[in-house]
Design a protein around this nucleic acid. Structure first.
Length: 549
DNA sequence: TGGGAAATAT
DNA sequence: GATATTTCCC
């Protein structure tokens, strides 16, 4: 066997031609397995922790009890299989467990599964190593394991999460509540904090799945004092406080006390931390405002560039420099928009919320225009393609589809989809479930949005986490599969026929099967993600591209 | 002021 | 030629 196609013909992932000796190969292989396990363990850990806190918090207190119940009932089935049984999950779901929670749980189990599988491969590998069967000379000829050396594929959870699409802080205001919305930060435990450290919400005790979270209305006391831009309705000019000094401390929570216009609702508090950023100022067109001082601070990095064009005169002529919407700016913009809801977003408000020095409502206006157009475009496109996601049938048990993507298609009809999201867990789950398994009663959506503002956000956050995890899982599994494939190749050269070899082979095929599924999952997943991205961040503005004329 | 669309700049 | 922004109009 060896004679033939030696090294190179060996398919698979040979990424670097290395000439490691076999021992090295083995080591690598072994290491790879180890790291797979570690990765999986890491995932498990995180998930578990997460679930733990949740339940500790009472959010899903009833779950454990329930679960143990169910599991005993289903003792017959094998633990693992049981978890893969979508009926089981449906059942749980009907008991009111939020989808995000169930999904977390499922993934946790998947992780365990991966660990288990990795573990057995490792064992096999160990056997293999100890086995005399492996002839050193034989081994020396093939070095197909080098590729694992540089596979630090598995990213850690955190970075992934960070790169995940941030859920728009949907700002649907709870119609009847006066929760204020603020930029948040996902914390490790179950409390969410605003950027300034103010706790926004946390999982609460309420058992009802519909209101698991508790939002902390800000310390209202504080806001009144806030005064920077004060009631935002008033600020008319763009000259915000140049007194940058204060920014950092700026209370991000400036609540606008109440709404201005539309009576009603909003307490649109704050936008993001409003540090007054720096931007370059542009000299405006002829009508320059206020004199000259446009501070032009170009903050490193952050803000953008007003591309200066006519370098010549500046003050006078209508030199307006073109504002480039950097990702940072756009990000703020999105936050601001989402804080109020696209439908209520108007330049002035956004401008206020963005709190960027030097930005004018005109800038915002046009950007908003573009934004809306993009949303419409995306929505349209989406409708067209509707119905593509559910492919991979086999994955019923992996409900990672997202959430706000297909949920409430209807509501969106009114143009700005993503922001419309105002649902509760249950709804999300129903929707996602529906797409995979049809039927399942539609729960009434619109019902209560009360206090779900924060909850919705939380759900989104959790869903995001799940997405990240799925990603990790897929990657991890993929890696394991890769590993097994190479093992398979190696096997034939090991002329041995022990049980472990057989077992290994079995594992191998198993993994290959899994891999297919996973790929499918991943594909779907990515697709959804793309869609989501489209809806949510349409395209980043000029950003990077540009150059060239 | 805000929305929308034409005009420009990149 | 396609986009991103700015202007112009209502």
């Amino acid at each position: 066997m060896e004679s033939n196609t030696s090294g190179e013909s060996l398919p698979i992932c040979i990424r670097n031609s290395c000439d490691n000796s076999n021992t090295e190969d083995e080591t690598l292989l072994s290491k790879s397995v180890d790291s797979n396990i570690a990765d999986a363990a890491f995932l498990e850990d995180n998930l578990e922790k997460n679930l733990c806190t949740n339940s500790k918090n009472g959010r899903f207190a009833e779950f454990s009890a329930f679960q143990s119940d169910v599991s005993t009932v289903r003792e017959d089935k094998q633990g693992e299989q049981m978890t893969m049984d979508s009926e089981y999950w449906k059942e749980l779901q009907q008991f009111g467990f939020p989808s995000s929670f169930l999904a977390d749980t499922q993934y946790l189990q998947l992780c365990r599964h991966v660990i288990a599988e990795s573990g057995s491969i490792q064992n096999t590998l160990e056997n293999l190593e100890s086995s005399e069967k492996i002839d050193n000379t034989e081994k020396s000829e093939r070095s197909q394991f080098p590729f694992f050396s540089d596979l630090h594929l598995i990213p850690t959870l955190r970075p992934l999460r960070e790169s995940a699409i941030l859920p728009p802080p949907s700002a649907q205001r709870p119609s009847s509540q006066s929760l204020e919305y603020v930029d948040y930060e996902f914390s490790k435990n179950n409390t969410f904090f605003a950027n300034d450290g103010h706790p926004l919400w946390e999982y609460s005790e309420s058992e009802s799945s519909s209101t698991p979270l508790k939002a902390f209305p800000f310390a209202t006391s504080s806001h009144s004092s806030v005064k920077d831009n004060e009631t935002f309705p008033g600020f008319g000019n763009e000259d915000k406080q140049f007194t940058t000094g204060s920014l950092e401390e700026k209370r991000r929570h400036r609540s606008l006390s109440v709404n201005d216009r539309t009576s009603a609702e909003q307490l649109t508090p704050v936008g993001p931390r409003i540090p007054v950023e720096d931007i370059l100022l542009q000299s405006h067109r002829k009508s320059d405002h206020i004199g000259s001082n446009f501070t032009q601070r170009i903050d490193d990095g952050l803000y953008n560039h007003y591309t200066e064009k006519s370098s010549s005169v500046d003050g006078c002529k209508a030199i307006k420099k073109r504002l480039v919407w950097t990702p940072e700016l756009h990000d703020r913009f999105l936050k601001a928009v989402n804080a109020v809801g696209v439908n209520n977003a108007v330049p002035k408000t956004i401008l206020y919320l963005m709190n960027v020095e030097g930005l004018t409502s005109e800038h915002v206006k046009s950007h908003l225009q573009k934004y809306r157009n993009n949303l419409k475009k995306a929505a349209t496109k989406r409708q067209r393609e509707a119905g593509q996601f559910h492919s991979s049938a086999s994955l019923n048990e992996v409900p990672f589809q997202n959430l706000y993507c297909n949920s409430r298609e209807n509501a969106l009809s009114e143009r700005y989809p993503q922001v419309e999201v105002s649902t509760d867990d249950r709804v999300l789950y129903d929707n996602s479930l529906r797409s995979y398994t049809d039927q399942i009663p539609d729960s009434t959506v619109s019902g209560d949005e009360t206090g779900s503002n924060a909850m919705v956000d939380n759900v989104m956050e959790l869903d995001l986490q799940i997405q990240s995890i799925v990603h990790l899982l897929v990657t991890a599994r993929h890696r394991v599969a890769e590993l097994s494939m190479s093992l398979e190749q190696w096997l034939p050269h090991c002329s041995s026929s022990n049980d472990w070899v057989r077992a290994l082979k079995e594992h191998t095929s198993l993994f290959q099967q899994n891999e297919m599924q996973l790929l499918q999952i991943q594909r779907d997943f990515e697709k959804q993600q793309r869609e989501l991205k489209n809806l949510e961040k349409w395209s980043l503005p000029g950003v990077v591209e540009q150059g060239n004329s």
